[in-house]
Computed example of a mutant assay.
Amino acid sequence: MKVVVTKSYDESCAYVADMICKLVNEKPNCKLGLATGGTPVPMYKKLIEANKAGKVDFSQVHTVNLDEYCGIPETHDQSYRYFMNTNLFDHINIDKANTYVAKGMGDAEANAAELEAKVREGGVADLQLLGIGNNGHIAFNEASDHLISVAHIEKLTESTINANARFFEKKEDVPTTAITMGMGDIMAAKCVVLIATGLAKTDAIKGLVMDNVITTQNPSSMLKMHENVVVVIDQELADAVGYKG
């Protein structure tokens, strides 16, 4: 595992954006696994800027997103399809037919099976982008006594619902289940890049980078078994974790 400590969150976003641009320039038809949530938004803005400046061309790129809420349509402003369109896809020269976000409506099990197929379609992701939850969850693979390897329906924990409540009018509006890639899907990617910021992530990142323990109570710790993982954190978080490099 490679841990990169930057001076600031903005620098972390620039570092990851540069990694993605380099990959796309080297392999124009690459496959990207993408993430939602607040953490990657500034990084996506940097990808938009690079695309508009002619520094990167997304016209042949394929993408698959980690997850989607169950029970809200893609037109809902909190759906992850809406998020990806408004924060990235609407602003770059990507073919939306080559982008995939799981369906939130309809037969949830069938939608999960479709996501699983998309993870493998045309080969696994060249790069999988991840954020991390306060409890160490990645995608919607929640801290538990067990984890699931394939795409599935996950019941969201109270801490995840509380963390996401800020995006909804009221807590009762937050979906309680989601479709998510499984841990095996994430681990199948050729390269995994996790970006984290904020002191709320201290315990989760400490469990990821400060020891050799792997536990389902911190799903991110599973990444220790992957041969090509890059964890990007800023100095504030590194100090809180006690990471010295």
Rank of each mutant, 00 (worst) to 15 (best):
C70R: 06
G131S: 09
K96M: 02
G182V: 11
M210D: 10
N51P: 01
G71S: 12
D18N: 14
G198M: 14
H137Y: 06
E49K: 15
M210H: 07
Y243M: 04
S144D: 15
T177N: 15
D203F: 04
M84I: 07
V231L: 01
A50L: 12
C30G: 00
A238M: 08
L199H: 04
I179L: 15
A240L: 02
E114N: 11
V193G: 05
V41R: 14
D10R: 13
G184D: 09
H146K: 14
E154S: 11
V61Q: 00
T75D: 10
C21S: 12
T177W: 12
R81S: 07
V209L: 08
L115H: 07
L32M: 05
A125I: 00
N51W: 01
D211H: 10
L208E: 11
V64L: 03
K224P: 03
F167R: 06
N25F: 04
S144W: 02
D107T: 00
G133L: 05
H137G: 01
V192G: 09
L23Q: 09
I179D: 09
F83H: 04
S159Q: 12
N135P: 05
G133P: 07
S8M: 10
G198D: 11
V192W: 08
T202V: 09
G242M: 04
G136T: 06
D18L: 06
E109A: 10
D67S: 11
L194H: 10
K171P: 06
M84G: 06
A53C: 05
V150R: 12
D57F: 10
V24F: 08
K103D: 14
H91N: 14
V232T: 02
G242Y: 09
T99Q: 12
A178G: 15
K22Q: 12
M225I: 09
T157H: 08
T215W: 14
A35H: 06
A178K: 10
N93H: 03
E26M: 07
M210A: 13
